[in-house]
Design a protein around this nucleic acid. Structure first.
Length: 296
DNA sequence: TCTGTATGTCAAA
DNA sequence: TTGACCTACAGAC
């Protein structure tokens, strides 16, 4: 589930298993052969997430940028230092196998299965990347330019006021619907369709209100809640946005996301689903809309 | 064997 | 606003 929390977990895992390790890089699929050659044999000095993108720095200064898109995923495997290093990205994939505790000792990476764009191998284990929408090697200047365009990431800016202020300014200066703004990575980085729907529900905000129509308090609440939800997502490894799921109803993990036609968990009214700017939007008219509007 | 699906993004019209 | 793209899998035929 590649929203921002996924990539932060990925960055952490990269630092855990590959930090300060010398890596060989290859592209079994062939599509990233040139890029792999530019990082092959180098030490990975550190990985960082910004929104949904991973930036991994190497000793020569070059930076590997990976965006998983809808389908991308990383698989990991290796010796005991890789225990707990799980697959990250799109759901269940070919070649994924659970490393049992009775596993024989690690002797090296397996034959690549499927379209492996990039394989990284250390002395202790390996990582395979499949299906990313972006995978490239950048100079520090190029990487900085990409990051400068992104909005604040609640997981990076949580403890500074800068992120909150920037978010407030960017939201309240726009006439576009807040539901669209939350998905715009130049406004705020790391929120995807699930967090968008759930944030708006939890704060009882009508998705079709423009940024300008929101109060300072509403925008502040959205930011603070984004920090909470994303941090929980990092901790749990999945997106759980309801209190119910934490108590006695483990299946009710979302209030409105993908619940079209079902009764709202709070007010009982039917949840609506409609397409907005090419993405599925879910909301509860009873809880979120002062003025009822039906899906178009 | 074919189709539908997906938590994303971009370029072209 | 639309289609293209990246990949793998479940389910239908």
């Amino acid at each position: 589930m590649p929203e921002g929390h996924t990539i932060h977990r990925l960055a952490r895992q990269f630092n855990d298993v590959f930090g300060n390790a010398r890596l060989t890089a290859s592209s079994p699929q062939g599509r990233f052969a040139d890029g792999a050659a530019r990082i092959d044999g180098q030490i990975l000095t550190g990985a960082q997430a910004h929104g949904k993108q991973l930036f991994a720095a190497f000793e020569s200064g070059v930076i590997l940028r990976v965006h998983l898109g809808l389908y991308g995923a990383w698989d990991f495997g290796g010796d005991e230092t890789f225990r707990g290093a799980s697959s990250i990205g799109a759901p269940r994939r070919v070649g994924e196998r659970e490393l049992g505790s009775e596993e024989v000792s690690y002797t090296g990476p397996p034959e690549p299965i499927g379209a492996v764009r990039l394989r990284l191998v250390s002395a202790h284990g390996w990582a395979d990347l499949r299906g990313p929408s972006a995978c490239e090697v950048l100079t520090p200047t190029e990487a900085a330019a990409i990051r400068a365009k992104l909005g604040p990431d609640p997981l990076n800016a949580a403890r500074s006021d800068d992120g909150a202020v920037e978010f407030l300014q960017r939201i309240r200066s726009s006439a576009r619907p807040v539901a669209v703004l939350l998905m715009d990575q130049n406004i705020v980085a790391g929120i995807g369709n699930v967090y968008r729907a759930e944030l708006l529900f939890r704060n009882r905000i009508d998705p079709m209100l423009s940024g300008k129509q929101l109060s300072v308090e509403q925008v502040s609440m959205l930011w603070a809640d984004a920090v909470v939800l994303l941090e929980e997502g990092v901790a749990k490894g999945r997106i759980i946005t309801t209190e119910l799921a934490n108590r006695d109803r483990p299946d009710d993990v979302h209030y409105v996301y993908r619940r079209t036609g079902l009764a709202c968990l709070i007010c009982g009214e039917a949840v609506f689903g409609k397409e907005l700017a090419g993405r599925n939007l879910f909301y509860c008219p009873g809880c979120q809309c002062q003025v009822r509007h039906l899906p178009d």
